[in-house]
Amino acid sequence: MRKTIAIATLLVAAGCSGTSSSGSAASSALTVFAASSLTAAFERIGSDFAAANPGITVTFNFGSSTDLASQIQSEGTADVFASASGTAMDAVASDPGVADRTDFATNRLVIVTPPDDPAGISSIADLAKPGVQLVLAAKGVPVGDYARQALTSAGLLSAAMQNVVSNEDDDASVVAKITSGEADAGIVYASDVATAGNTVRSVTIPTAVNVVASYPIAVVAGSPQTEAAMSFLNEVIGVTGQATLKDSGFGPAA
C-alpha cells in the first residue's frame, strides 16, 4: 500500500517537474513524509497551505515514522519529514541529513476502550486486571514503545503484558481493534482519539506516568525546493497550523 503511494508520489513529482521546466518557474511540487498520526491534521494544514500558495502542490506520504525514515534513506524523494519520534528523525539526520529541525507538536498517550467498556477500565491500573484483552502497537513502533514506557513507570508492565493479545503495526490498527469491539483496551495517542470521535471511549493516563512524544519536523537534505519546503514548515509551526494541530488532539511543542 505505502509502496504504491510512494511510487505514485514519485510519478506525480516526475510529471510535475517535467511540465514545470518548460512552464512557470513559480510552480513546484512538494513531497511531505509524515507520521500516520498526523494524517488528519496535515491534510487540513495542506489545504490551507495550498490556498495560500497557489504555485505549490503538496503531496503527502503517511506511514509509520520508522518506515518513512528508511524510505527517505533508500529513495530520497521527500522534501519535508515530520516524524512521531526523535529516533526516526535522528536516522534521517545522519543520512541524508536535515536542515531547520524543530519540534512542532507533542502527543500524549491515552487509553481507549469500546464505548460500552466491556472490561470496566477506569485507570491505567485496570489494564493489569486479569482477563483484560489489551492491544498495543508493536515494539519498535513509537507509540508501542511509549506505551511500554508508561506501563513501566506505572509499575504495571509485566502484569499488563500478560494481557496483551496483539501487537499492532500502528496506532490506527490499535484503534481499529477497539472500534470493532474485539479488544477491551488499547493505548494510543490523544490525536487518535480526536480522529476516532465517539466510536471509542478514552481514559486519561496521569501526567506522572504518561509519555509525551515530541514531533520533530525538518527539511530533508538534497531537496530541490528548500524554499517551498521552508514555507510549508513555517505553515506547520505558524498560528493556523498550531491551531489545527490543537483541534486534532496534539499539544504545543515543549
Binding site: 492491544v135 496483551v164 493479545v165 496483539s166 501487537n167 503495526d169 490498527s173 481493534k177
Partner: peptide, 13 residues
C-alpha cells in the same frame, strides 16, 4: 490474519 487474529508471538504471529 493480522486483521482478524492480531499479532502476538507464539499465538498468532
Amino acid at each position: 490474519t493480522i486483521t482478524f487474529a492480531g499479532n502476538l508471538a507464539g499465538r498468532t504471529q
